[in-house]
């Protein structure tokens, strides 16, 4: 990839595994667990977060020289809240059922620590292009974990992926049953805990 410099590349790719916002920095878990009952919910949520994160990073980075450091939190919150209201209204207008299912969790992107964290830690110091890539990378890193958790919860909890039955009928006839625990909240905690464990186990050298 000669298009991107080394710094831009690391801004984009590092958050996917090496500095993954959810599993390693433990940011933004609130929403990550709540919307992972089904894969389609997780996908919409990921889209919303990627949009908010990359846009807010870009905007904040562009105006970073004009933000006084004492009031920066309020300014960042205002920008993020505006973007989140926007995406909430769009979801309500075009995907009403999905927005009902996601209920308050779209609005809660505002207090998602990833968005605030990246705005404060990265966008305030770096130029707009890299901040945009950093937002994209963190958004995708967040999405990867979200979709992984949703994949296992939907597979074991309802026997489907994206609403399509995966586990064949004869397995149920043999006495297999869906694991009801996965659909409930403890399932989310346990799946995410195990994913964090495996991730650290596999990327032991790369991850600190």
């Amino acid at each position: 990839m000669a298009i991107l410099s080394k710094k831009s590349r690391s801004a984009l790719y590092d958050p996917l595994v090496k500095t993954n916002p959810i599993s390693l920095s433990v940011l933004g878990i609130c929403s990550a667990l709540a919307v992972t009952i089904r894969v389609d919910q997780a996908l919409i949520m990921t889209g919303a977060v990627i949009f908010v994160l990359s846009t807010s990073n870009t905007i904040i980075s562009v105006i970073r020289k004009y933000i006084p450091s004492r009031t920066r939190i309020i300014i960042q919150l205002a920008i993020i809240a505006g973007l989140v209201s926007l995406i909430d209204q769009v979801l309500m207008a075009y995907m009403y059922n999905m927005s009902k299912q996601l209920s308050v969790f779209v609005s809660l992107i505002v207090t998602n620590c990833i968005v605030m964290g990246r705005a404060d830690a990265y966008a305030m110091q770096n130029p707009a292009g890299n901040s945009f890539l950093d937002g994209l990378g963190n958004g995708f890193g967040y999405g990867a974990i979200l979709i992984a958790v949703a994949f296992f919860r939907e597979l074991f909890g309802s026997g489907t992926i994206y609403g399509i039955s995966i586990i064949p009928e004869f397995v149920y006839n043999l006495g297999y049953e869906n694991l009801g625990l996965m659909v409930l909240s403890p399932g989310a905690f346990i799946v995410l805990g195990l994913i964090v464990w495996f991730q650290k186990e596999i990327w032991k050298e790369k991850v600190k």
Partner: peptide, 18 residues
């Protein structure tokens, strides 16, 4: 070793939640 910290806290939270 690799489960220490976040991973373990998650599993514990799962149990408390149950």
């Amino acid at each position: 070793e690799q489960l220490k910290g976040v991973g373990m806290a998650m599993l514990l939270t799962g149990l408390i939640s149950m």
